[in-house]
Every structure is written in structure tokens, then in C-alpha cells.
Computed example of a mutant assay.
Amino acid sequence: MTLEFRSIAETDDRAVLDAVVAHCRDLEAQMRAEHPEASVDVTIVCETVGLDTPQDAPAVKLGQELGLEVQADKVTYGTEAGIYSEGGISAVVCGPGDIAQAHKPDEFIDPDQLAQCEAFVARLVEHVRA
């Protein structure tokens, strides 16, 4: 069995993984009662850090100054932003498109969204230059 889960920063991922492993150990004991050679191996292939950027964080304030609309929604996208944040770098995730059209056959980004993104990046470049 392969399992993947993504959570938000408020979730204790270690507690979730510990509960999964404990359940696997219980199943293994039940299986071995019938078949002594049965086993369950748990291998964690990859983990990453969730992102929980406060509304008053520098990256949020900068995004607002440059025209981004701040959303309080939490999503379970896997990005490197949580790693940067854990390292002390204020981070947000933004970009064009809608998740409803992403990561599936015939995914697309509306050209207007690309134009808005291009304008935002231009404002960001000007801010960095100033």
C-alpha cells in the first residue's frame, strides 16, 4: 500500500504518522496470528514542512502592497515555502491559475491570470530595484 497525505501547518504530522504506524503494527500482529511470516513494513519516503504565515508577516504585507489579495484559506499544496519559513524567511505562495484546472488532463491557466501574474512580477521587480 502506498499512502500520501498533505496537511496544513496546524496538523501534527508526526502524530498522524505515529497513529498510522501503530495501526500497522496492530494489523501485523493480527496477521501473524494466522500467518507467522506476515509482516508490515512502513517506509517514509519524503516529508516536508507545512506553511503557516501570519497575516502580519513581511511577505504578506509586501504582497498586499504590490496588489495581491490575501486569502486566509489553508491548502495542502506541497511547496518549499514551509522550509523557507522554518529557516526564518517570510514566505507566501502565490501564482496564476485556479487549482480546479490544475494537475489533471487538459489543465490550463486563463490568459488573463497570466497577464495579472506578469504585472505582479513587474511590480515586484520594481520594488526590489527601489
Rank of each mutant, 00 (worst) to 15 (best):
G50M: 04
P58N: 00
K74C: 05
S90Q: 01
L27S: 11
S7G: 07
E34S: 12
P58T: 02
H23A: 15
V121Q: 04
I8K: 03
P96W: 09
F120A: 06
E80Y: 07
A57F: 00
P111V: 12
E4P: 01
D12E: 04
Q113N: 13
A9G: 02
S7W: 09
R6E: 03
G87Y: 05
A19R: 05
E80M: 08
E80C: 07
A38F: 10
I99N: 02
Y84L: 11
E10R: 14
L124V: 10
D106F: 03
L62P: 01
L66K: 00
L66D: 01
H35M: 11
L62E: 00
P105V: 04
I109P: 01
E37D: 14
M31E: 14
Q116V: 14
Q116P: 07
Q71K: 05
D52Q: 13
L124Q: 10
I99K: 05
G97A: 10
P105E: 03
D41A: 15
I89S: 01
A91W: 10
E107T: 04
D98N: 12
V16R: 07
P54M: 00
A29V: 13
H127P: 06
D26S: 12
G88Q: 05
E34P: 00
V125A: 06
E118N: 15
T53N: 03
G50I: 11
K61F: 00
C94I: 10
E34H: 11
R14L: 15
M1I: 13
P105G: 02
V16P: 06
K104H: 12
A91S: 13
E28H: 11
F120D: 01
V21Y: 09
D12L: 06
R6H: 03
D56E: 06
C117R: 07
D13W: 08
H35E: 15
T48A: 08
G97E: 03
D13S: 15
D56K: 00
L51T: 04
Q64I: 01
A81K: 02
E10D: 15
E10G: 15
R25V: 12
H103A: 02
C94K: 01
L17F: 12
Y77P: 00
T79N: 04
E118F: 13
V16T: 12
V20N: 13
A122S: 12
I99A: 09
Q101V: 10
I83E: 03
A15R: 10
A72V: 10
P58Q: 01
D13L: 11
G50Q: 06
E4M: 09
A81M: 05
E28Y: 13
R14F: 15
D106P: 00
V45I: 08
A9T: 05
I44S: 09
I44H: 06
V70D: 00
D41S: 13
V16N: 04
A115E: 14
G82Y: 06
V75D: 01
V40E: 00
E126Q: 14
A115K: 11
V42R: 10
A100M: 05
Q71N: 02
D52P: 06
L62A: 00
P54Y: 01
D13I: 15
G50L: 04
E34V: 08
L62F: 05
A22N: 12
E34M: 08
A115G: 12
A115C: 08
E34T: 15
A100L: 11
V49F: 04
A122M: 11
E107F: 07
